[in-house]
């Protein structure tokens, strides 16, 4: 039983570290701030979930798990707020964004 839980924890931790590395790599590869923010939100959302969930499996049903859950909730509540504040400040300060036009001029049909 503990072997299965240890294996699951290892898998979740490995996935989490891989996703965190993906996000950090994205901030290096993407061309401007606006696209880099998308990369950093990967590390904020799913990577933190994977790592904290892997730790929760180790802790079981204790107060430690509750604390891990609280960290997870705080991260998921604060990360959109801080990235929105960041992109809003950058936009209002006229940081140039690199955009790509749609191939055809007409806007896509939006379903009601």
């Amino acid at each position: 039983m503990t072997l299965i839980i240890d294996g699951l924890t290892a898998i979740f931790l490995a996935l989490g570290v891989f996703l965190a590395f993906t996000g950090a790599l994205g901030t290096l590869r993407f061309p401007d701030l606006y696209t880099r923010l998308h990369a950093s939100s990967i590390t904020d959302t799913l990577a933190s979930f994977m790592i904290l969930f892997g730790l929760m499996l180790q802790a079981g049903l204790t107060l430690i798990s509750v604390k891990l859950l609280l960290i997870f909730l705080f991260l998921w509540y604060t990360s959109p707020a801080s990235s929105h504040a960041l992109i809003r400040a950058a936009y209002l300060n006229r940081l140039p964004a690199r955009l790509i036009r749609r191939p055809n001029k007409e806007t896509p049909p939006s379903k009601p």
């Binding site: 965190a20 996000g23 950090a24 950093s40 590390t43 904020d44 933190s48 990235s83 960041l86």
Partner: peptide
């Protein structure tokens, strides 16, 4: 900000 999140984890 990302560094801080990583520090928490």
């Amino acid at each position: 900000n990302m560094f801080g999140t990583k520090t928490v984890l």
